[in-house]
């Protein structure tokens, strides 16, 4: 019993890291542009597909980062279409990203087909606390944690990070001190693209990916991000991990068919509990 538990928890943490990465991409974009990017899950799918293609010619360790980089450019492109025109409202941009996400289905099916794809990750399994876990999950966790630490460093301790945060806080004042708010929005989209792609690239070896895998990822990523009011990466990480572990436990001990519903139900309960305790937490800071 105990050995199963450790395995489920680590598997869940790994999956949760993926949700957290997708969610933090949403956060990165929302903070700066106030746009909820519905194409966020698409970044993960395209990242995974790109990596699977690149791996036929390039070795591991090169193909995956290249795929992430390529999708950062895709993110930039999505940004251009969504917020490139001055005066586009966040609501209009949201619909644009939704349209792009659906359009991306066609592109992905055309280029990579509609069959599930996968590629090899870290081979083998390890024993943790008497439980057997696929080693690849440890890589997922081992990459995600430094990425989040790096993001905290970037947003808090670099000029560009501060400028992005300033745009999120007060775009009007940001312009006045020489920040090109539109450019920062595009940068945010590129960062969001990279984070989404990273989730896709990391998860594909343990969970096959198809053109419509973005739905699961965005639903869970969004739930994780909403927990932090769509603005706090650290809370998003916690939310993603909570979702991942809950789903793994439900699937392990109960019925895998209901894992997403039960996890999202739990998320809803957490949010209602938080809102009841701190009503101000839901208020938009101006």
């Amino acid at each position: 019993m105990a050995n199963e538990l450790a395995g489920y928890v680590i598997t869940g943490l790994g999956t949760g890291c993926g949700f957290a990465l997708v969610g933090s991409g949403l956060v990165a974009i929302y903070r700066v542009t106030r746009v909820v990017n519905f194409a966020q899950g698409t970044f993960a799918v395209i990242g995974a597909m790109c990596a699977s293609s690149l791996l036929s010619v390039l070795p591991h360790g090169i193909a995956e980062p290249l795929a992430v980089l390529a999708v950062a450019l895709v993110g930039l492109l999505v940004g251009f279409v969504a917020i490139g025109r001055p005066g586009t409202t966040p609501q209009a941009a949201l619909i644009v990203t939704l349209g792009l996400a659906i359009f991306a289905y066609a592109v992905v099916v055309l280029v990579w087909g509609d069959q599930p794809r996968s590629f090899a990750g870290v081979p083998g399994a390890v024993t943790v606390l008497d439980g057997r876990v696929q080693s690849h999950y440890l890589l997922v966790i081992g990459v995600t944690v430094p990425v989040f630490a790096g993001m905290a460093l970037f947003f808090g301790h670099t000029d560009l990070g501060r400028a992005l945060t300033a745009c999120a806080s007060n775009p009007y004042a940001a312009r006045v001190i020489g920040i090109d708010v539109r450019r920062m929005g595009l940068l945010a989209f590129a960062i969001g693209g990279a984070l989404g792609a990273l989730a896709g690239v990391l998860l594909t070896p343990v969970q096959q990916i198809t053109f419509d895998s973005d739905v699961t990822l965005i639903v869970n990523g969004f739930a994780a991000a909403v927990l932090g009011g769509l603005t706090r990466p650290a809370v998003t990480l916690a939310g993603g991990l909570l979702l991942g572990v809950t789903q793994a436990l439900v699937a392990g001990y109960g019925n895998a068919a209901h894992q997403t519903e039960i996890a999202l139900g739990l998320m809803l309960a957490v949010m209602i509990g938080r809102a009841a305790r701190r009503p101000a937490a839901l208020e938009e800071p101006t």
Binding site: D159, R162, A166, S169, N170
Partner: peptide, 17 residues
Amino acid sequence: RVFRGMTVLENVMVGAH
């Protein structure tokens, strides 16, 4: 017109952008 959610020092540092 300040950047709420940031410290006073961060507010001033971002002015160097």
